[in-house]
């Protein structure tokens, strides 16, 4: 029954323990809606036929709803609504309180990728390996704007907010690969900010963990530096350095040193802030906005760079900052992790 409903409603497979709970309340609501909707529709239809206009200026009797009817109109829906609210809230509380034996994973969203780091182990970009059948607690934050970590098959969603950690957890019921999407609009490549949860059987997970362990830094921050390096590699491979320098001297194209967030004059007049959106656009549509003083000779890299490549390139360009005054310590955000 519930499998049939799931297919009729186009829901993805139920990949987590949460999914079946969420679907349960979903089916309850949707079935009630259709029954009541049909009842109202039928009533309306009968009235429409039975009481259709017979002559233009007919007088109609004054009918007033008795009080019990008004009370019924209020109490019946209220009863259902509150019941759903209560049932949903029970599951919601459950979904927000991770079991104590959960495996911790730090999740960092940034434009436009997901980074995962295990407290004592390796980090990874865009692929989260977890053991099936064991609760996994996610501590989610963001490096730039708000993102939202969304696994449709798990019916799981939690925002990644810069400056604070949000927390959620899941338990994959069986091994498999489940797509991760970003559900909070985060800019140009929002729709390509995808990742994957790979649920492994516990034994396979241990094997994977030992393979990965050892050489990586044990914190989420450790993942960032390799990305810059990766960006440098991508830039070399794609031939960016034929035209762009990293030491501040202009060449065929503008230098990348200090480019990030610089106000650049355009050849069409006006200026543009070289933010992530502009940098990405320049890789994909170089002729759209050409910096004044440079020939529009750059080829498009559309289709030649993967989303990960673009992100690492942008990261690399971001890392090439000019010497700037360091902001006073006051302004550093306080990150408070709630202890367990």
């Amino acid at each position: 029954m519930s499998e049939l409903l799931r297919r009729m409603l186009f829901l993805p497979e139920e990949g987590s323990t949460l999914a079946s709970r969420v679907d349960g309340i979903h089916f309850f609501i949707i079935l009630t809606t259709f029954v009541v909707g049909a009842a109202i529709g039928l009533t309306g239809f009968v009235f429409l036929l039975r009481f259709r206009r017979r002559h233009a200026h007919a007088l109609t009797p004054e009918v007033l709803a008795p009080v019990w009817m008004e009370a019924l109109f209020v109490s019946v829906p209220l009863l259902f609504f509150l019941l759903w609210g209560a049932l949903g809230y029970r599951d919601y509380v459950w979904s927000r309180s991770a079991p104590p034996d959960a495996l911790d994973v730090y999740v960092t969203g940034k434009q436009w990728m997901w980074k995962f780091a295990y407290p004592e182990g390796p980090g990874a970009v865009d692929v989260l390996h977890v053991p099936a059948g064991r609760p996994v607690r996610l501590l989610i934050t963001s490096r730039d704007v708000i993102h939202s970590f969304y696994v449709p098959a798990f019916r799981l969603k939690m925002d990644a907010i810069p400056g604070r950690y949000t927390e959620t957890w899941f338990e994959a019921v069986r091994p498999g690969r489940y797509p991760v999407l970003c559900a909070e609009y985060c800019g140009l490549d929002h729709s390509h900010m995808r990742a994957e949860v790979v649920a492994l059987s516990p034994a396979e997970f241990e094997v994977w963990r030992t393979q990965q362990g050892g050489d990586q830094v044990a914190s989420g921050a450790g993942v960032a530096e390799p990305l810059v390096e990766q960006g440098r590699v991508v830039a070399t491979r794609a031939g960016c350095f034929q035209c762009h320098t990293v030491d501040g001297t202009p060449h065929i194209g503008p230098t990348w040193r200090g480019l990030y967030l610089r106000e650049e004059p355009l050849d069409t007049g006006g200026t543009i802030r070289a933010d992530v959106a502009y940098l990405t656009e320049s890789m994909m549509e170089p002729q759209a906005k050409v910096v004044a003083g440079y020939a529009p000779v750059m080829p498009s890299f559309q289709g030649r760079l993967s989303a990960g490549d673009v992100a690492s390139l942008v990261e690399f360009i971001q890392s090439l900052r000019p010497e700037r005054p360091v902001p006073p310590t006051v302004q550093e955000p306080r990150y408070e992790l709630r202890g367990r």
Binding site: H26, I29, V36, G37, I40, G85, G88, R90, L156
Partner: peptide, 27 residues
């Protein structure tokens, strides 16, 4: 209006159910 408001309203109640919103939010 009445027909569409009914379904619009009921889907509103559905997304106001906290657990169901975990799946539907921002979709």
């Amino acid at each position: 209006f009445i027909f569409l408001l009914f379904f619009g309203g009921m889907s509103g109640v559905a997304v106001a159910v906290t657990s169901a919103d975990l799946h539907w939010h921002d979709t």
